[in-house]
Design a protein around this nucleic acid. Structure first.
Lengths: 228, 228
DNA sequence: TGTACATCAGTGAACGCGCGTTCACTGATGTAC
DNA sequence: TGTACATCAGTGAACGCGCGTTCACTGATGTAC
């Protein structure tokens, strides 16, 4: 009986080792920063030989960057997936807050690692931020927002997404409390952007209801977490 | 000629060594995280013997925590100082955004280190956050804000302060661009909180003008950076 | 103020440990025919 | 499909370096009288 027989045939030995290292790295990053994780720790957690690490990665920081990039890509994919069914760009903004919050509630480890890795988060051409910028631009294009949002709407919304997700993760909020926060922040944020009161109330209440629903899982998207 | 003669007599030998280490630590933290700074690096930068570090600090992380705490205390003092002259709590909120932005413009090193150390930033009883909570509470008490702000106004405003300061530091914004961002974020944020349009316009324009003014230095508060 | 002594704090050599990195070897996987 | 061979990737011992920490010694500072 070979150990490898238990795993899908199409995943080769090299990919299995690589994935084991990335998964181990991810799990260790939940609790401490990459600089406090040694390669000894990594290979022990992945149950591979020390030398194998250097067969796959040039350095520990390149390794951590791959984990961060893959997690961000998964989040980006989830937001795109959620927004694909929606026509109104203002609703995209509301989803853009709900998806990471839902992810923080049901995949708290991923959220923890992402927040730990969230360096240089206000740069416009960061992939996740580009998504927010596109949402805001679409809203501006259809005249839904007040003029100040054209220039600063992206960092405004980004700041709100970020602080809300952080709040859920760091204070370990219950689903009910997180849902209330989503409603409030959607209300304050969308009103700030200049959306009319009635529409804002509707979106805020919907947002709260979504987070409360156990069936709301926009962040679950098929495919492996670790890309080749 | 003794080296010590060049320094104020009232600062003893022990305090001088301690301050040199803290100052060196601060300067190294501008460029990299504490885990990538060795005690060899610290004592070399401070120009003291290796053993001296352990005469003053139990560990590197206690040392870094002292630096972070002292920087936060200086920022807190600056905000309190700026708000002492102001009666209207809504203006406190506006100042609460302007002080860190002005600090980021004229003391970018401090801002960099503070952002690097900004762990667990949404916890309510973190000293700086308590200040924001108090400002929001005062606004709510006088009925200036919409109801959603009573529960979530603190993290809403905190998120905006944080993202704006981060934006200025990471993108190295010019004073003019930073002033525009302050105006826009004040506008979007205060409107979101429910302040009436006319008042918001006034505060946003004032905020921009303050940042543009070279004489606006609310963050400069007397006293040594490193407490005993 | 001056002297004698105690305590405090600076010094840098020495220590052993854990780190990242290398590499010769081995067995698994892929390829040619 | 089976065989022979080449290449790929896993292994873990070995390496030397830099790290945090200790400590005996020294000189500065503080205290008593």
């Amino acid at each position: 009986l070979r150990v490898t027989a238990a795993l899908p045939i199409e995943v080769g030995r090299a990919a299995r080792t690589r994935n084991a290292l990335l998964e181990a790295g991810f799990e260790l990053l939940v609790d401490r920063p990459i600089d406090l994780i040694s390669i000894n720790d990594l290979v022990a957690a992945a149950d591979v030989a020390k030398g194998s690490f250097f067969n796959h990665f040039d350095s520990k920081h390149e390794f951590a960057e791959i984990i961060a990039t893959d997690l961000r890509a998964a989040m980006e994919k989830a937001i795109k997936h959620a927004n694909a069914k929606i026509a109104d760009p203002v609703e995209w903004l509301a989803q853009g807050i709900q998806v990471p919050v839902e992810s923080a509630l049901s995949q708290p480890q991923r959220a923890r690692v992402m927040l730990r890795m969230a360096a240089r988060t206000t740069i416009a051409d960061h992939p996740l931020n580009r998504g927010v910028a596109a949402m805001v631009k679409a809203c501006v294009a259809q005249g839904a927002l007040r003029s100040e949002a054209a220039n600063s709407g992206m960092i405004f919304w980004l700041g709100l997404c970020h602080v809300l997700t952080r709040n859920v993760v760091e204070r370990d909020l219950s689903r009910a409390k997180a849902a209330d926060e989503v409603r409030n922040i959607l209300f304050l944020g969308l009103r700030g952007l200049g959306i009319e009161e009635k529409r804002v109330r509707q979106l805020a209440v919907e947002g709260r209801a979504n987070i409360l629903k156990a069936s709301f899982r926009p962040h679950i998207v098929d495919g492996p977490l670790w890309k080749s």
